[in-house]
Write a protein that binds this DNA or RNA. Structure first.
Lengths: 162, 162
DNA sequence: TATTGTTATACTCTATAACTATA
DNA sequence: TATAGTTATAGAGTATAACAATA
């Protein structure tokens, strides 16, 4: 309550500087956030996803849909539970995700005769060609990341995260 | 449709192996996902946030709330627009976020007399002590990350991401 | 009993658009 | 006219719980 008087000689000079300096941002300090891996992981994830989304929106494939198509494509016949566990997606969410991909004719759910509870997942022919197109765009996106991060840092991050 | 007959000799052996092997997971391959930085950034972010959330849930502070409190605490008087830009949060979302923190008596929004449109943000005394407690817990969380990742990899990641 | 897929619910987050009051 | 804060809305993601069919 006692600080009410001193507040305005803080924000105002920052904004005046912003107009005359090369950096448009005021000098805001992150404090302890600068030591938190989670903070930077989130920022990186958002930054990368934004480029990915923009790159694949022309074929209407989201990051989650892409990961689902890739894993089904490389592991034909796997179950929804296995797919969910592999990608760290909730089983319940995967249901709707697959529903839409099935409606679009990209994925098939086949009853497993060995275990009546399971669905064996596989791509349809259109699903395979959609995935092929998606992979090309995704590779272009990854190339852009390499450009912006530098090849060494990109490789270093990928290696450290794996 | 022609693949219906061959699907079961794919998933079934995986599951049988899972019971006898040391690894409980079937050998599912990630394919091109293994080369995508975004995929690993997302997995890292989820993994880190889960530990962070569990660590700070006892004081009912979410990751987003924590980052807001930290930045306000270190930049008293900044505006909502500045805060939103700094953290990469939507201005619209920040409104509700601050609303809750204000209701809990942790944050104050003061009208800037220099610019009637802006709110000068600052922590209340309870807000400052809540932040102090949160920082202690957050440091404990970060220590756990360092334990699990190894100090070198943690430092390397932090450095590469900054 | 346990597991697979499913439905339902609630809450958070993201992305917009539009409104108000101030500048 | 532009900006700061706000409200509203729609969609995605997350976290649960409960259910039917099957094991």
């Amino acid at each position: 309550m006692a600080e009410k008087q001193s507040r305005r000689d803080r924000a105002a000079p920052f904004r005046r500087k912003a107009a005359t300096r090369s950096s448009p941002r005021p000098a805001i300090v992150l404090d302890v956030l600068d030591g938190h891996l989670g903070y930077f992981a989130r920022r990186l994830q958002i930054w990368v996803f934004q480029d990915f989304i923009r790159t694949l929106e022309r074929i209407d494939i989201s990051p989650a849909q892409y990961s689902v198509l890739v894993v089904i494509g490389a592991n034909r016949g796997l179950s929804q539970a296995e797919l969910a566990a592999t990608l760290g997606i909730e089983r319940a969410r995967l249901v709707r995700l697959l529903h839409r991909l099935e409606e679009r004719g990209l994925v098939q759910r086949l009853r497993s005769s060995a275990d009546g509870r399971r669905h064996a997942l596989q791509l349809t022919p259109p699903g395979r060609s959609a995935l092929a197109r998606a992979k090309i765009l995704a590779a272009r996106h990854e190339g852009r990341l390499i450009e912006k991060l530098g090849a060494e840092r990109h490789a270093l991050l990928l290696d450290a995260l794996r």
